[in-house]
Design a protein around this nucleic acid. Structure first.
Length: 439
RNA sequence: CGGGGGGUAGCUCAGUCUGGUAGAGCACUCGGCUGGGGGUCGAGCGGUCGCAGGUUCAAAUCCUGUUCCCCCGACCA
């Protein structure tokens, strides 16, 4: 993509509404624009990242044996009256009336919808276990949206729902999602630690929040430092295999959010030099809730003896849009964003320092074309802005690599390759530069 | 929902107290000098001062109402 034809309205100054780093940088890098409180438009740069994150989530869900569906954003109120949540949910739920006077709502979540779909189609234990997910926009009318995309009212979420015949099987479904989440966040270059979460009125130990460690996080967390070095389950792992030992390992050490924190327990469980007390961002939440919805909504299957049995269910969320902000919180510096390669909007930023100079233009165009042919996603700054502005802008948008070509280096056939994360610059010949990214 | 702060050019903000021709920097357009870390000189473009009503010869400024946004708290994936 040529920068001259790319819609990327960057800002030199920080808009006054942005307080935290990710919000500030997303606005400055031209990724999002606010529409109203907690509601944003996604501009090309932001949308590319959002889609990359969404795809990683999708790939890992599919690998774990889940089926993708797409449920509507607008749901009928009657569905929620069945579960009793229409009355319980309160003002967080955006309620709408259609032209016929029917009560509708913009879905804050989809337990009712998925249960309705499942109960209408599945009759036998033979069709279990099953896990359906979708990636869809949700709306929760938060009293006070904040932190930009991190806690908006409208947000993109992946939510999965598992259906099983009994508790034992449901626990296996839970474990598969647990492992899948470890892989998903790791692929995005994140350290997300599963922490004990509130199980609410249902009880049990099957609820974990996946927390991203970041100093600007919204809640305090306490955990064992060794989690940072734990191995993540490998690509291609067999989800029919032993998930329990992985879950056991990843839940063996102390890790809680502040509402579950007890100083004495923390001190007793973690040696002093391993105590990690920082802030965190919740990017995933997995939860087993048993028959709460299947009983309220009459979702049953016949078991092997022919008895109608209520489905055991669990739900598994990942905040896809929140992750965009979360990744930036975890990976930025004073100059701008530092994208992990897996979610970067482009792999390389190619800077032409002197558009209009024949030799410089020719070298840039040649490299741009060859990299493109090799399938490398390049943002080519072909504008005639000054060098300083180009460097600052490229650092701001945080592409993993920068290739700088100007008359000075070109006299010796040299391009400069800079790694955004380390800041290390190398002088390479044009061929070496090409090979570096295509070899 | 309680408390606080705001809305003036695309962005950051002054001007409001004390009413009297709407400003600066950045951005943008044109031209000159420049040319490897947001340069420089000159000339431009750009505003129903959130909205409605009131007071006044005269309102960005005073009064009333209203709406939107931000921050702290409570709440929350």
């Amino acid at each position: 993509m040529r920068l001259s034809r790319f819609f990327m309205p960057t800002l030199k100054e920080t808009p006054s509404e942005a307080q935290i780093a990710s919000h500030r940088l997303m606005l400055r890098a031209g990724m999002i624009r606010q529409s109203s409180a907690g509601i944003y438009s996604w501009l090309p740069m932001g949308l590319k990242v959002l889609k990359k994150i969404e795809n990683i989530v999708r790939e890992e869900m599919n690998a774990a044996g889940c089926n993708e569906v797409l449920m509507p954003t607008i749901q009928p109120a009657d569905l929620w009256r069945e579960s009793g949540r229409y009355e319980d949910y309160g003002k967080e739920m955006l309620r709408i009336e259609d032209r016929h006077g029917r009560d509708m709502l913009y879905g804050p979540t989809n337990e009712e919808q998925i249960t309705e779909i499942f109960r209408a189609s599945v009759r036998s234990y033979r069709d279990l276990p099953s896990n359906l997910y979708h990636i869809q926009w949700k709306f929760r009318d938060e009293v006070r949206p904040r932190f930009g995309i991190m806690r908006g009212r409208e947000f993109l979420m992946k939510d999965a729902y598992s259906f099983d015949i009994d508790h034992e099987s449901s626990k296996s479904a839970y474990n598969r999602m647990f492992v899948s989440y470890l892989r998903t966040f790791d692929r995005m270059g994140l350290k997300a630690i599963p922490m004990k979460a509130d199980t609410g009125p249902i009880g049990g130990d099957l609820s974990h929040e996946f927390i991203l460690l970041a100093e600007t996080g919204e809640s305090e967390v306490y955990c064992h430092g060794d989690y940072l070095d734990f191995d993540v389950p490998p690509d291609g792992i067999d989800y029919d295999g032993d998930m329990q030992s992985i879950v056991d390992k990843w839940t063996s050490l102390y890790a809680v959010t502040d509402e579950k924190y007890v100083a004495e327990e923390f001190d007793a469980a973690v040696p002093e030099d391993k105590r990690l007390h920082t802030r965190g961002i919740e990017v995933g939440h997995i939860f087993h809730f048993g028959t709460k919805y299947s009983e309220a909504m009459g979702a049953t299957v016949l078991d092997q003896e022919g008895n109608a049995t209520h489905l055991q269910m669990g739900s598994y969320g990942i905040g896809v849009s929140r992750l965009v902000g979360g990744i930036i919180e975890a990976s930025h510096d004073d100059d701008g964003i530092i994208w992990p390669e897996a979610v970067a909007p482009f792999h390389i930023g190619l800077i032409n320092l002197r558009p209009g100079d024949d030799a410089t233009d020719a070298a840039c165009e040649d490299l741009y074309e060859k990299l493109g042919n090799a399938g490398v996603d390049v943002l080519y700054d072909d504008t005639d802005e000054r060098a300083g502005g180009k460097f600052a802008k490229m650092d701001l948008i945080g592409l993993p690599w920068q290739i700088v070509i100007g008359p000075r280096g070109l006299k010796n056939g040299i391009a400069e390759v800079k790694n955004r994360a380390s800041g290390i610059k190398e002088e390479l010949s044009l061929d070496e530069t090409l090979n570096r990214f295509t070899g």
